[in-house]
Nucleic acid binder design. Structure first.
Lengths: 358, 358
DNA sequence: AAGACTCTTGACAGCGCTGTCATCCAGTCG
DNA sequence: CGACTGGATGACAGCGCTGTCAAGAGTCTT
C-alpha cells in the first residue's frame, strides 16, 4: 500500500512473492505463460511494496524506450499547444511519455533539441520544422521514426502531415473574389515556411484564375509576428488604392490584422485568416477563417508515428488533409461600391510567384 | 563527423582515443583532473564517432535524472502553454528536459501522471494542481522536489508560487466600484480551484469594503468553460436588475463573457477579467484585465524547483506574486445613469463567502 | 510406459554508464 | 635521496531490468 517508497526494486518484489525476478518481470510486462496464482502473488507483492519499475533501467536493458519527442516553435501558440496535447494524449494511451522541445521563434534551439532527444533515446519524434530549407533539418536522425507536421522541410523520405495549404488559400481568396473583391492584400510570415509559401501560391492561383493581376505592393511576407502585421498593414490601409480585403496567412498574423483594423476603426475591410483562433468569432466583424483542424492533423501524424514505432513498415508519405472555411462575417463583407480598380489593371496581367518572392 | 550512428558506446570512444572508459566518462562530464591533451584526444574521438551518451544508462548508473515533469490542465491553454515554455527554456539551460503531462479538464489523468513521472524518475516536478482539496494531490511524492504553481492544493509542506489572487480580485472589483458600479456580477469556475475561491473572497471583500451588499443571484461559480460563462451570463443580462459590470475570474471565462456581450450587442457592460488573453485589446470595448504575468510566475517557480533539485535546502514557502491591472476600456465604462439600485439594498448588507458558497 | 510436447520458472549475462578505490607517476620536501 | 603528496588514469562492481537459454513439471501420444 502507500505511496511507493522509492528504492523498491524488482528483487524486493521477487523475494516478497517468493519467485525469481524474471517472473516479476513477466508479470510487470504482462508476458504470457505465468500461472494466474503466481501472477496474483506477485501483483500483491508489487502493491504491498509500492513497487514501480525503474524506467531508466528498463529502457537500458530492453534497448527501447517509451518516450516520444515533440519539437515545435512555441508552446504558447495554441496551434502547437493543441498538437502537443494530442500527442501527449495519444502517447499516454500506449503508456508512453512526451518530451517537449520548443525551438523558439527563430528556431535557434532546433539543432540542440534534435541532439538531446536522440540522446534521450526517444522512440520517435513529431516535428513541426521551423523554416523550410533550413539545414538544421538535415540533422534529423534517420534511425528512428520521425513524422513532420504542419510544414514540410527540405528533407526527403519523411512522412509529412499537413493541411492543404495551397488549395485552402486559393479557396479563401476565391471566397473574397466571389464577394466582389479585386484588391486583396496578402499578409504573410516569411516564405521560408513551406506553409506560407504554399499559401502564397494559392493566393496567386486564385487571382490568376479570375484574371486579377497580383499587386506586389499589397503582398507582404515579412511579418515575424502580430506586431509586424499590424504595422505593415496600417500604411497600406491609408494608401491611394487600399486593399478592400485582406488574407492573413497565419493566425498570428491575423491577430495583428484584426488589431490594425480595430485600431483604425475599419469595419469595412474584408478579412479571411488561415487558421482559426480564439475569439475570432467576436471580433468586429467576426473573422472568417480557414480551419486547419490542428487536432485532426495531430491525430493523423500520431497515427503515423505510432504505427512506425510499433514496427509497421510504411513508405514515406505526404499526407495532405483538407480544411474548411468558416464564414463568420468578415470574409463576406462586400467591397465599397466605389472601390478603386486595381491600379495596374492595364499594365500587367500576371505576377508570378517568382517575382513576388523577390 | 556526421549524424552519430546510434550504437556508439563509451567503449568505442575509449578504444579510439586509447584511454579507459572512465577517462571518457570524465571528459563527457567535465570532471576535473584530466590532462588537456587527453581530453582533446577523447573529444576528437567523440566527434569522429558521433558518440552520444545514453541517457538511460547514465541515469541508471548515476541514480539521478535530468528530466523534470510538468503537470498542467491543458496544454492548449496559453496560460499553461507559457508556463511549460518557461519551464522548458529554464530546464534547457541546465541541460535538462521536460516531460509534459496534462490532466485534462477534469483532472482525470492526474493520478496516473503523477505515478508515471515518478516512475520515469524525474528529478522534480512543477504542478498546477487541478482542484484544491482533491485527494489526488496527496499522492504527490515527497521524496523529490515539487513546486506547485498557480494554485494551492490541500497538501502542506510544498512550495507554492501563485498570484495574489485575493488582492488582485479585490483591486479589480474596486476598480469597477470606483467607476460607479454597484451591481457587479462574478463569473467563476468552480470553487474547488483555490484561485477562484480566493478571487471570490477578493470580490466579496471589495464589495464589503464599500458597503455594497453581495447579491448571490449575480454570483456564478459553475462555469466549467467559456460556453458555460456565455450561457450563464446571458439570462442575467436580461434580468430585472441586470449587473452593470462583470468580473470574470479566469481568462477562459472572460472569453465566454466577451462572447455573451458581443452576441447580445452590449457594449455598455463594464468587464474586468482575471488574466490577460490574446486579443483582449481588440474586443469591443477592449477588455480590462488583471495580468497575472504567467511567465513571471513560471520563472519564480522554476527558480525554486531548480534550486531544490540542485540540493539547496529550503523551507517550504508560499510565494505570492503581485499582479497588475491593465485598463483597456471595458473596465472603465461607467454604469448607465439610470442603473437600478441593488435589489436587496434595504434587505441585507452582507453576504459571507460561506453563504455564497452554498 | 517411454518419448515428445507444452507450460512455468529461474539462472545469468549483459544494456552503457558512473562511483569507488587502487595504481602510477612526477614533483616536493626534509 | 627516500618518503610524501597530489594529479591523472584505470579496473571493476554494480544501477535495475530484460533477453536468452535451460531446466523442471505436467500433459499427451502411440
Amino acid at each position: 500500500m502507500g505511496n511507493g517508497a522509492a528504492g523498491v526494486t524488482i528483487y524486493d518484489v521477487a523475494q516478497a512473492a517468493g519467485v525469481s525476478i524474471k517472473t516479476v518481470s513477466r508479470v510487470i510486462n504482462g508476458a504470457p505463460n505465468v500461472r494466474p496464482g503466481t501472477a496474483a502473488a506477485v501483483q500483491r507483492a508489487i502493491d504491498d511494496l509500492g513497487y514501480r519499475p525503474n524506467a531508466a533501467a528498463r529502457s537500458l536493458a530492453a534497448g527501447r524506450n517509451d518516450t516520444i519527442g515533440v519539437i515545435v516553435d512555441r508552446l504558447q501558440d495554441p496551434f502547437f499547444g493543441q498538437i502537443v496535447a494530442v500527442a501527449e494524449a495519444r502517447a499516454l494511451e500506449l503508456g508512453m511519455d512526451v518530451l517537449v522541445a520548443s525551438t523558439g521563434v527563430e528556431g535557434h534551439r532546433a539543432t540542440a533539441h534534435l541532439a538531446r532527444l536522440v540522446q534521450r533515446g526517444v522512440a520517435g519524434m513529431l516535428i513541426a520544422p521551423f523554416g523550410d530549407d533550413d539545414p538544421i533539418w538535415r540533422e534529423i536522425p534517420r534511425d528512428r521514426p520521425v513524422v513532420l507536421i504542419d510544414r514540410r522541410c527540405g528533407v526527403q523520405g519523411l512522412d509529412v502531415v499537413r493541411a492543404d495549404d495551397e488549395q485552402a488559400a486559393k479557396a479563401a481568396v476565391e471566397h473574397l473574389i466571389t464577394h466582389g473583391h479585386k484588391r486583396i492584400a496578402f499578409l504573410g510570415a516569411p516564405l521560408r515556411f513551406s506553409t506560407v509559401s504554399d499559401r502564397l501560391d494559392g493566393y496567386l492561383a486564385a487571382l490568376a484564375a479570375h484574371g486579377i493581376p497580383a499587386d506586389p505592393t499589397i503582398i507582404e511576407t515579412h511579418c515575424a509576428d502580430a506586431t509586424d502585421s499590424t504595422q505593415l498593414l496600417r500604411p497600406r490601409l491609408d494608401a491611394a488604392a487600399p486593399p478592400t480585403a485582406v488574407f492573413s496567412s497565419t493566425p498570428m498574423i491575423a491577430e495583428g490584422v484584426v488589431r490594425a483594423l480595430a485600431l483604425a476603426g475599419r469595419r469595412d475591410v474584408a478579412h479571411v485568416a488561415f487558421g482559426d483562433f480564439p475569439l475570432a468569432d467576436v471580433t468586429s466583424p467576426p473573422t472568417t477563417v480557414i480551419d486547419q483542424c490542428p487536432e485532426t492533423l495531430a491525430h493523423a501524424a500520431m497515427d503515423r508515428l505510432l504505427a512506425r514505432i510499433s514496427g509497421t513498415e510504411l513508405a514515406p508519405e505526404d499526407i495532405v488533409l483538407p480544411t474548411r472555411l468558416i464564414p463568420r462575417g468578415s470574409g463576406e463583407l462586400l467591397p465599397p461600391p466605389d472601390a478603386p480598380q486595381t491600379r495596374n489593371d492595364m499594365k500587367r496581367t500576371k505576377v508570378t510567384a517568382m517575382e513576388v518572392r523577390q
